[in-house]
Amino acid sequence: MSDRRKIATRESYGRVLEKLGAEYPNLTVLDADLVGATKTAYFQKSYPERHFDCGIAEANMMGVAAGLATEGFIPVVSTFAMFAAGRAFEQVRNSIGYPALNVKIVASHGGISVGEDGATHQCNEDLALMRSIPGMTVVCPADGVETEAAIRAILAYDGPAYVRLGRSDVPMFHDEEHYRFELGKGVTLREGRDVTLFATGLCVYESLRAAEILSANGIDAEVINLHTVKPIDEALVIRSAKKTGRVVTVEEHSTVGGLGSAVCDVLCEKAPTLTLKIGIPDVFGRSGSAQKLLDHFGLTGEKIAQKVLDWMKDPA
């Protein structure tokens, strides 16, 4: 599994956005002085008249997007997750979420894989924040193929949506030709009997790697990609939890309020299941290379497998 082509989800986003510019004449793109980093630069180059660099002013950018949406344009707004979901939270809630406007917020640099910039720029809270807004769809693609499919899907959907992308290169493991993406539907990537690993974003691939290690240790793990964190695929979560009886959630996000919480919200009401939440454990990130940080926070296949093994032996 290690020789796969690697590409950052933000790069795939930039490429597909440029393609979609031709398909959607009412697509407008807004950025906040980060066109090179969020990769909206490709769209900007092809469609300069529909790309607006709003400067370092994210609050206003969200409002401008809202205004454009009221006039039938489809605004796609990009900046870092920290500033989209964090700084501009209230603008997203009140100017986009409350009026249920057709604005797509596509935020790059989610999670600790931002790397060297450190804690101030590593947003480990965006899924929690966006998930709390009524009517907001929240998507966290796992690789380039899924990113392209997710961007196409949210543009075809009418309503506010938040998509979280990453800065670092991640392996492309979905099959470009055959992958079918459906908003709100999880994808079972590996069937298993002993434990379910529900993962999102770059942790999906790492969970697949963990499942291989677990298999070598006699544990048959099911791996499910929950690319849509909201609305979560309740039926699939319940079905798999009932089948394996043990649940692990894996995300590059705080264990407060993200995928782990979304899964537990379903399970505690409808299928109580012992659950281990793997993620950033309610602490801030720090500087370092993305790979070293993923290892430091226990989000590599090896570390995930070890945590699951320890927990399966002694869940208390």
């Binding site: 809202a66 006039e71 100017s95």
Partner: peptide
């Protein structure tokens, strides 16, 4: 009502977005 508002400072940004839409159209 053309735009939901109330949280101060936000309506003007939406108005700017609407004016921009007018220019684009």
């Amino acid at each position: 009502v053309d735009m939901s508002s109330g949280s101060l400072g936000q309506g003007v940004s939406a108005a700017v977005g609407i004016a921009l839409a007018g220019k684009l159209k």
